[in-house]
Amino acid sequence: MSKRASSKHKIDRRLGENLWGRPKSPVNKREYGPGQHGQRRKGKVSDYGTQLRAKQKLKGYYGNVSEKQFRKIYAEATRRKGDSSESLIGLLESRLDAVVYRAKFVPTVFASRQFISHGHIKVNGRRVTIASYSVKVGDLIEVKDSSKQLAIVLEATQLAERDVPDYIEVDHNKMTAKFARVPGLADVPYPVHMEPNLVVEFYSR
Rank of each mutant, 00 (worst) to 15 (best):
I73A: 04
F105L: 10
I89Y: 09
D171A: 14
E31Q: 02
K174T: 14
F179Y: 15
H120E: 10
R4H: 01
G35V: 05
G49F: 09
V100M: 02
Q51W: 06
K72C: 00
V106L: 07
P183H: 01
V200I: 15
Y62K: 01
N64Q: 12
H193V: 11
K59N: 06
E142G: 08
S117N: 14
Q149A: 05
S6P: 00
G38N: 08
L185C: 09
R205N: 14
E93Y: 07
K55S: 04
S7I: 00
Y133N: 14
H37T: 11
L19Y: 07
Y203R: 03
V135D: 08
T157M: 07
A151Y: 03
D83S: 15
R102V: 01
H9A: 06
S117I: 09
D83Q: 15
N173Q: 15
V128G: 10
S94G: 10
V200Q: 01
K55P: 05
W20Q: 01
K104E: 03
R95S: 03
Q114L: 10
S134I: 14
G119K: 11
N173W: 11
K122R: 15
K42F: 07
G43T: 12
F110G: 12
K178V: 14
P34V: 07
S146I: 08
K59G: 07
Y133K: 13
V100E: 01
R127M: 12
K3L: 05
S134K: 15
P165T: 11
L92P: 00
V109M: 07
V143Q: 06
D171V: 13
D163Y: 09
E161W: 11
V27F: 02
F105V: 12
D12P: 00
S146Y: 05
A177Q: 12
S112W: 05
K55H: 07
K8I: 04
G138E: 13
S84F: 03
R181M: 08
F202N: 04
S117K: 15
T157V: 04
Y48F: 11
Q69P: 00
K29Y: 06
V99R: 05
V200H: 01
Y48S: 02
D97T: 07
P196T: 09
G60Y: 00
G119L: 04
S147F: 02
A98P: 02
E155S: 06
R41H: 12
